Computed example of a mutant assay.
Amino acid sequence: MCPHEPSCPSADGPGREAARTVVAHPEQGWSLLCNGVVLFEDTGELLPDGAVIEPHRPLAGVS
C-alpha cells in the first residue's frame, strides 16, 4: 500500500503515471513508481500484473 498522503493513484487507473517515483534508473531508461508500475523512458509501462502498456508518446509534428 502507498504510504503517501494523499495516496498515489492505483496501477489500474488512468492516472497511474502520477504516482511517486520510488526507484529511478535514468541511465537504464526506467523508473519504478509507488503503485508498482515500471515506467519506461519511451512512455511504455509494465503493470504489476504483467500487463504491458505500449508507448504513448505524442508524435512530433502531428496535429
Rank of each mutant, 00 (worst) to 15 (best):
L46E: 10
G44F: 02
G13W: 09
S63M: 08
P58H: 15
L39D: 03
P9F: 01
C34L: 04
E17R: 09
L47H: 09
M1T: 08
L46R: 10
M1E: 15
E17W: 09
H25Q: 13
V37M: 02
L59Q: 15
E17S: 10
E41K: 05
S10H: 10
P55T: 01
G61M: 09
S31M: 09
H56G: 15
H25I: 15
I53K: 12
T21R: 13
F40H: 08
L46K: 13
R16L: 08
H4M: 12
H4V: 14
G50F: 00
G29Y: 02
H25R: 13
L46I: 11
R16K: 06
V23H: 11
L33K: 04
V23F: 09
H25S: 14
T21Q: 09
F40D: 04
R20Y: 03
C8F: 02
A51S: 13
V52H: 11
G29Q: 00
L32N: 05
Q28A: 10
G36F: 05
V62S: 06
L33D: 01
Q28L: 10
V52W: 12
G13Q: 12
G44E: 02
G61E: 04
G15M: 14
G15Q: 12
P9E: 01
S31P: 02
P26D: 07
N35R: 00
L59R: 15
D49M: 06
E41L: 09
G29A: 01
A24Q: 08
G44P: 10
S10I: 07
R20F: 06
G50S: 05
E54K: 14
R16A: 03
C34M: 02
M1A: 11
E45R: 11
L32H: 02
A19P: 01
I53A: 11
E54L: 12
L47I: 08
G44I: 02
T21V: 14
A19K: 02
R20V: 05
D42R: 04
S10K: 13
S63K: 12
E41P: 14
P48R: 04
L59H: 08
E5I: 08
L39P: 00
W30F: 08
V37E: 00
R16M: 06
L39I: 01
L33P: 00
H4D: 13
V38N: 06
V52D: 12
F40K: 06
L33A: 04
P3G: 03
P55D: 08
E5L: 12
A51F: 12
